[in-house]
């Protein structure tokens, strides 16, 4: 059975599909954000401001608190202290409906590929549901596998489906937690093309990774995090050419951050 690769409209790095309008959920600001697990501080006094479109990559070693930070931004976790404000508003169901989160291990329902996408589309009552489904399948390169059980797909296909499902509900912000960890280069490329498509469509992408090369390839902005603290937040070229922190420099040099 032939498997179609996702398609993407090429776009210059940093350019979005709607540079003029700006993203309706931005700026994202956190103030004094803290989160503890069993008395251990995982996120420590994070003051973050994401103001521009494009792709912001939260980079850092394993255990830095990247995934927890994502969950706090999306409102899946409640902070011990501090606040998260999307364009001045606390995260709630209304705001969350305008975002989409794709987990590191994609959560796919025990249904067919098409039914997974249909479920998400039905939640938002879009009038063009059929068109959205067809487009999402095409985007994920899974049209020919539409009626196969979603959980029987390969890891890369599952992640593509999860991202296409997220895009099918037309979020303003796409949040991705290590979307290509443990995937081979081909599958990683397909995922990055999907992310590029999201950027082209003007969605703000916030992505967590510990993969330096991936960050280099796709990021417009790097938020480097270590031990639950933001060490630096700079445009991507600046981070990779001239990191301002010792931790950042050490991480780029392949040093072990402990």
């Amino acid at each position: 059975m032939s498997k179609r690769q996702p398609t993407v409209v090429p776009l210059r790095k940093g350019q979005t599909g709607r540079p003029d309008r700006g993203n309706p959920l931005l700026p994202l600001k956190t103030t004094d954000l803290c989160f503890d697990i069993n008395g251990k501080r995982i996120i420590d006094q994070v003051d973050l401001a994401i103001t521009s479109d494009g792709i912001s990559v939260i980079l850092g070693p394993n255990g830095a608190g990247k995934s927890v930070l994502l969950r706090l931004l999306h409102g899946l976790l409640k902070p011990a202290r501090g606040e998260v404000l999307w364009r001045g508003r606390h995260i709630d169901d209304t705001l969350r409906k305008r975002q989409a989160l794709v987990f590191q291990r994609p959560v796919l329902m025990r249904r067919s590929v098409a039914d997974n996408i249909r479920f998400a589309i039905a939640l938002r009552s879009f009038p063009d549901a059929k068109h959205r489904l067809d487009r999402a399948l095409e985007l994920a390169g899974l049209t020919s596998q539409a009626y196969q059980p979603a959980r029987a797909l390969s890891g890369g296909e599952q992640q593509r489906l999860a991202i296409a499902r997220a895009l099918a509900i037309d979020p303003d912000v796409l949040i991705l937690d290590e979307p290509s960890s443990n995937l081979d280069p081909g599958a990683t490329l397909a995922i990055e093309q999907l992310i590029e498509t999201a950027r082209v469509e003007g969605k703000k992408v916030i992505l967590v990774t510990h993969d330096l090369n991936q960050a280099k390839r796709i990021a417009d902005e790097i938020i480097f995090i270590h031990h639950g603290r933001i060490i630096e937040q700079t445009p991507s070229p600046l981070f990779f050419n001239n990191p301002t922190s010792n931790h950042g420099r050490s991480y780029l040099d392949g040093g072990l951050l402990v």
Partner: peptide, 20 residues
């Protein structure tokens, strides 16, 4: 977590879980 993220209403969630 996925349901929370998608803001799935309680009734829809229960029906979906029963089906799945």
């Amino acid at each position: 977590e996925q349901f929370h993220s998608l803001v799935v209403p309680r009734r829809t969630a229960v029906m979906a879980l029963l089906w799945d």
